[in-house]
């Protein structure tokens, strides 16, 4: 697998911005910052963590979302997915 890259996320509700380093998941960083977003499988299977992407280009890594759910509804699994763009705005 290609080398992961770091990117930024912005949480729309609190307007907080965090950097996601190459070796951590979005969820890792949220938890380090005391944001206990619901999770279960941590690998894009169960759907517990699904959130909406409000801006940016997501790099989906889950195994369950349909194209429609990803592209039209903007669903995204922050436990395992990353970003192609520099910044992702999430509805958290």
């Amino acid at each position: 697998m290609a080398e992961e890259r770091s990117f930024e996320i912005q949480l729309a509700r609190s307007q907080q911005t965090y950097t996601i380093p190459a070796d951590k998941s979005i969820i890792d960083v949220l938890y380090e910052n005391g944001i206990n977003h619901p999770i279960s499988c941590e690998q894009g299977i169960c759907g517990t963590c699904i959130v909406k992407v409000l801006a940016g280009e997501p790099d989906h890594r889950d195994s369950i979302l349909t194209d429609d759910e990803r592209n039209r509804e903007g669903q995204f699994t922050p436990c395992c997915s990353r970003a192609f763009s520099e910044r992702l705005v999430l509805d958290i």
Binding site: S40, C41, I45, C46, G47, S63, I64
Partner: peptide, 16 residues
């Protein structure tokens, strides 16, 4: 409280 495995993807999609 149950935690899915990687192999649960088909059943999760079915339930969705």
């Amino acid at each position: 409280w149950l935690v899915d495995n990687k192999a649960d993807a088909p059943r999760v999609m079915a339930r969705r």
